[in-house]
Computed example of a mutant assay.
Amino acid sequence: MSTEAQTSNDKELIQPPPENCPGTQSENAGKSSQCEGCPNQQICSTTPKTVDPDLQKIQDRMSTVKHKILVLSGKGGVGKSTFSSQLSYALSMNSEKQVGLLDIDICGPSIPKIMGLEGEQIHMSGEGWDPVFVQDNLAVMSVGFLLETEEEAVIWRGPKKNGLIKQFLKDVSWGDLDYLVVDTPPGTSDEHLSIVQYLKNSNIDGAVIVTSPQDISLIDVRKEINFCKKVNLPIIGVVENFSGFICPKCTKESKIFIPTSGGAEQMSKEMNVDFLGRIPIDPLIARSCDEGKNYLTAFPNSESTKQYNIIFQKIKEKLNL
Rank of each mutant, 00 (worst) to 15 (best):
I155M: 06
F145L: 01
L193F: 12
V154R: 03
L180Q: 06
G175V: 06
E120P: 01
K200P: 00
A153M: 05
K200I: 01
M124Y: 12
Y179G: 05
L199T: 06
G108R: 15
H123W: 02
K97D: 11
P109I: 02
V143E: 01
I114M: 15
E127G: 07
H192F: 12
L193G: 04
L164S: 13
K166S: 15
K170A: 01
L180Y: 01
D136H: 15
A207C: 09
K160I: 15
V99L: 00
D178A: 10
V132M: 11
G163A: 15
G116V: 14
V181R: 03
P185V: 08
C107I: 10
A139Q: 13
P131T: 09
E151F: 08
D130N: 15
V210N: 04
S202V: 08
D105W: 14
G116T: 13
W129P: 13
E118I: 11
V210L: 13
V181P: 00
L169R: 06
K160V: 12
G158F: 03
V99H: 01
E120S: 15
G116W: 06
G206C: 07
I155G: 02
L177P: 00
V99Q: 01
N162T: 14
K113N: 09
G163R: 14
G100K: 12
R157P: 10
Q98L: 04
D103Q: 03
K160Q: 03
E152S: 11
S125L: 10
K200Q: 14
H192E: 10
W156H: 02
V182H: 05
L117I: 09
T149E: 09
D190R: 04
E191C: 12
G175W: 01
W129M: 15
G187S: 12
P185C: 13
E150V: 15
S173Q: 08
T188D: 05
S212T: 15
D130P: 08
K161P: 07
L193W: 04
D205W: 00
V208A: 05
T188I: 13
V172Y: 00
Q167G: 02
F145K: 07
G119W: 14
G100P: 10
G100Y: 02
I165E: 03
D103K: 07
M141A: 00
S194W: 07
A153Y: 01
K170S: 02
K160D: 05
V134H: 10
G144I: 02
T149Q: 10
L146Q: 01
K170Q: 06
K160N: 08
G108F: 13
S212M: 07
L146G: 07
A153D: 04
L146C: 02
D205V: 03
A207Y: 05
S194P: 14
L102F: 04
G128H: 11
G126P: 05
S212N: 09
I114A: 04
W129V: 12
K161W: 02
D178P: 09
G126C: 04
V182A: 08
L101E: 00
Y179K: 15
I204S: 03
E118P: 06
I165T: 09
I104S: 05
V181T: 06
F145V: 07
